[in-house]
Nucleic acid binder design. Structure first.
Lengths: 134, 134
DNA sequence: ATAAATAAGATCATTTTTATCCTATATATA
DNA sequence: TATATATAGGATAAAAATGATCTTATTTAT
């Protein structure tokens, strides 16, 4: 079980935009080259990040990407979930039928709590704090 | 991102064996039927659980599975990781090269901590406590 | 108008996951 | 000891998810 490649690319992309600063336009080609991301694939990922309101895509000549939030407000959780969807939205571990008969299923509870803890950790991490990474 | 089907099956299987009790032999066919698991596939999963020392497989006529630990000592984490491997053993989110140049990479740290928290939650959940699930 | 840059749908390739088939092996018991 | 029963384990197939690219369309600066 691991973070998907798309998730990694998204983080790299947002890290690069964070270093450039909120509102600063950066060409897609530059992000792709500098952060080692296939450019077309980055295009797809960018669409998801833009839909989530995290960045803006500017078309046309001199187009590119632009961070829409302050790195201080941008969390690892927001970026990752924008791309790979809600983390651990799992079908119940028990049989589906027996499960929706019991909303108080213990397995389900444990799983949910574990997920919440995980998300909390990622939510605490802002890109401002991640940028120091070198 | 979700738990794999194999992981779900493993939990269901161990839950059934827990209800039978440690050391009690249960036929594979019975587990498969009762817990809604493809029997051959269960065979594969059982091998992994057996290798991890969580259960024993008995061959031959009157063969089957047998729980090797007390439900009080069996954790959700042990079962899940026996089947799907270490959780979140992710390649670094940053470029691999830049990453192994910096063992103090912030992204890596956050990710590692989030994973640890997640595993803690699953480790606290014993099958004895999960059995109440109905 | 033209050139440069991204959008978006289609498509392809790869990998992972899920599942099954088949032959071998182990074991209870007749 | 022979037979029937049950699981082991390797090979393989089918399906799904993921990763990546191709092509055409659209947008925008100059």
């Amino acid at each position: 079980m691991r973070l998907s490649r798309a998730g990694e690319y998204a983080v790299r992309c947002m890290l690069y935009l964070s270093m450039a600063g909120k509102g600063v336009l950066v060409r897609r080609k530059t992000v792709a080259r500098e952060m080692d991301i296939p450019e077309q694939f980055l295009g797809k990922i960018a669409q998801q990040l833009a839909r989530a309101g995290l960045m803006e895509i500017v078309q046309g000549a001199k187009g590119g990407f632009r961070l829409m939030v302050f790195p201080e407000e941008l969390t690892l959780l927001a970026v990752v979930e924008a791309v790979i969807g809600e983390i651990f939205l799992n079908d119940c571990v028990l049989r589906p039928e027996s499960c929706h008969r019991s909303p108080d299923c213990k397995v389900h509870q444990v799983w949910t709590e574990a997920r919440d803890r995980f998300r909390e950790s990622l939510q605490k991490a802002t890109f401002a704090s991640l940028m120091d990474c070198r």
